[in-house]
């Protein structure tokens, strides 16, 4: 690992202030940002060990977990999750499991117990792609690491790569699980930075690669995620995360679906669908939602939803199977969610 200067911050304001003393360019690749916040470290330190991320300064924000931002607050109106809450704390929280099951399931299925004990939920949503060409600096071509250098995955081994939201510049898959659950529950993300606090729909946080795959999120340099908020919407309780992978533990999704349904008998009153493992960003499948809203969830509606979800899919040499797998993952998740007792 390359040397860096280490500092600690005990509050979000202190962290942002520390980060702000280094000039940072807004269009710099996210891997090249000279200051990085360190929470659980499970992704950042891995990325630093393989020399993809090379921060000059690391601001350890773990002490913020001692504040409200390390906690979980549940009320009748919904839930507030501090960004420094650990994946395990959220996944094992009784109210989360009962009232927002898709959240708990996505976190449990995301990583081993040891990693869940360490990793913060704020860091989790920012984890970097597992694209092997991005992670291996011996490949010069990676537009995410080095803008304009090309994409080795396009002509490489791309079985694990995305079929939705790709561009000519990048086909790397967003690797996480929790983010899809947040989208299914219309979560918002709270952010603090040198210019104050702001919040946005979580679904807006990640940017599709287009011709700037090095710009992964809408966070400005030095901005810090402080919390997620989730309203107690009618579809929160009837929600589920289904993850399909090559093996049952510590593996990333080939295809996954976060589904939340508000049912009136067997009619879908409202639906939320987010897909993982198949897209470049946490992917809201709005067209699929539209196909089942107001309808009986029969085979025809399920097939229409699956068709709509992948209508714009684009496959590469080794990943054509992801369309069929993604459709089946989605229809199974919808069936199982509709059948839930709530």
């Amino acid at each position: 690992m390359r040397p860096f200067h280490y500092e600690r911050a005990a509050t979000p304001a202190a962290a942002v202030k520390m980060a702000g003393t280094t000039p940072m360019s807004p269009d710099q690749p996210s891997v090249a940002t000279p200051v990085q916040y360190l929470a659980g470290g499970t992704n950042l330190l891995d990325m630093m060990k393989i020399d993809v991320m090379r921060p000059d300064r690391v601001v350890d924000i773990n002490a913020i977990a001692e504040t409200r931002h390390g906690g979980i607050e549940v009320s009748d109106d919904g839930m507030w999750l501090g960004a420094l809450a650990r994946m395990a704390e959220v996944a094992e929280h009784a109210d989360v499991k009962h009232r927002f099951p898709v959240i708990a399931q996505s976190l449990t299925l995301a990583a081993s117990q040891q990693l869940r004990n360490m990793a913060s939920i704020g860091g989790n949503v920012l984890q970097r792609t597992r694209c092997p060409y991005y992670r291996d600096t011996s490949y010069a071509e990676c537009n995410k690491r080095d803008p304009g250098s090309g994409c080795a995955a396009l002509g490489g081994f791309n079985r694990m790569h995305a079929v939705l939201g790709t561009s000519k510049a990048c086909i790397a898959t967003y690797p996480g699980d929790f983010a899809q659950a947040l989208i299914a529950l219309d979560a918002r993300v709270e952010i603090t930075g040198a210019h104050g606090h702001r919040s946005m729909a979580f679904a807006e946080l990640h940017r599709r690669p287009d011709d700037e795959p090095h710009m992964e999120t809408r966070l400005a340099p030095g901005e810090l995620i402080t919390a997620f908020t989730i309203a107690a919407l009618p579809w929160a309780r009837r929600s589920k995360y289904l993850k399909i992978r090559d093996r049952e533990s510590y593996e990333f999704a080939l295809a996954s679906a976060a589904v939340a349904l508000d049912m009136d008998g067997d009619i879908v009153r409202e639906a939320r669908i987010a897909l993982g493992g198949v897209a470049t960003v946490p992917w809201r499948a709005s067209a699929a939602e539209h196909e089942i809203q107001g309808k009986r969830l029969d085979e025809r509606a399920l097939a229409a939803a699956a068709e709509a979800a992948f209508a714009d899919a684009r496959v590469f040499e080794h990943n054509a199977f992801k369309i069929a797998l993604g459709k089946r993952t989605l229809t199974r998740a919808l069936r199982e969610t509709a059948a839930m007792e709530t």
Partner: peptide, 27 residues
């Protein structure tokens, strides 16, 4: 593995199992 996958580096930190290969001593 050194990448947090294999678990041979497991230690218990404040009562919880963690990966010591993906954690700075400073932490």
């Amino acid at each position: 593995c050194g990448t947090g996958d294999c678990g041979t580096c497991t230690a218990i930190l404040d009562g919880e199992a963690v990966r010591s290969c993906l954690m700075l001593t400073a932490m």
